[in-house]
């Protein structure tokens, strides 16, 4: 009974909403609001395997490349800056300033500097996504428990072992927070870099549909972008669960007492 109730609660509203869209839009004559069945139909026709290979995968590749580079660079610099107090004091205002830029303004500057190729688009994603990761990593490294640091010192755990088991792990909740903040930025930057530095890619294609007034295809593109967002956030959650299992377990335990 309780299981049934939970399933009903979880699926009820989404089903109702999709059904409302489906039936409410059925037979729609409005040029800009085609029926959902038309959109689904267009989706199947538009996003074929070739289309994925030509337009979608290159976009996703740039997205992931830029995002991962940003995470790696952000964590590496964050560990360095967080470890040395003077470096942090020196750089913090600069970083806060750079972080305050709305990342989309980077696109025009990057186009000026390096054209409209893959490099520009990846660079833009890296530059937009690195700040949340970097600043959160600094916080994480700084906020590490002193007793743990002392433990490592007394037991002479040093070098790479210390980096792996103390520095990175202790900062990992903050690192994940930063990476979570960066993910939607990466998607935004992927899409608008493709719209502005237009020659190919998912964002470019969807906008072409809009410009050519291929409305059902455009809607299907909007759906695809939405699905990509959902899938990426699910993947992120899976990664987070395996990475931070200890953290959530510990916090759940603390709340009980």
């Amino acid at each position: 009974m309780r299981f049934l109730r939970r399933v009903l609660l979880a699926l009820g509203l989404p089903v109702v909403l999709v059904a409302a869209w489906w039936f409410g839009s059925a037979g729609s004559q409005d040029f800009y609001w085609p029926s959902l069945s038309t959109i689904v139909d267009a989706f199947g026709r538009t996003w074929t395997w070739e289309m994925f290979q030509e337009q979608v995968f290159p976009s996703l590749w740039r997205l992931l490349a830029g995002y991962l580079i940003a995470v790696v660079v952000g964590v590496a610099l964050g560990v360095l800056i967080g470890t040395y107090g003077s470096v942090r004091a020196l750089l913090e205002p600069v970083l806060e300033f750079l972080r305050a830029f709305p990342p989309p303004v980077l696109v025009p500057a990057a186009i000026l500097l390096s054209g409209i190729g893959d490099r520009t688009k990846i660079l833009v994603i890296v530059f937009g996504c690195v700040w949340p990761v970097l600043l959160n990593t600094i916080e994480g490294v700084r906020g590490r428990d002193e007793v743990l640091s002392d433990t490592c010192r007394t037991y002479r755990v040093t070098g790479l072992l210390r980096l792996r088991h103390l520095v990175l792990r202790a900062a990992s909740p903050q690192i994940v927070t930063g990476a979570r903040q960066a993910l939607p930025l990466a998607i935004i930057l992927m899409v608008i870099s493709e719209i502005m530095a237009a020659n190919e890619g998912l964002g470019f294609t969807v906008l072409q549909f809009q410009r050519g007034f291929q409305i059902p295809e455009m809607w299907s593109g909007v759906l695809l972008l939405g699905l990509i967002g959902i899938v990426l956030s699910l993947l992120f959650r899976v990664a987070e669960r395996s990475l931070l299992g200890w953290y959530h377990g510990q916090r759940a335990g603390q709340r009980e007492f």
Binding site: R6, L9, A10, Y32, I188, V206, F213, V222, L225
Partner: peptide
């Protein structure tokens, strides 16, 4: 709590939809 439980999945699905996906839509509208 009932309302929260009923909307949880919907929120979880709508939230990660990137706002830029709406760009072509709002342009035509």
């Amino acid at each position: 709590p009932v309302l929260r439980a009923a909307t949880a999945t919907t929120v979880e699905f709508l939230r990660p939809i990137p706002s830029v996906a709406l760009i072509p839509l709002v342009i035509v509208l």
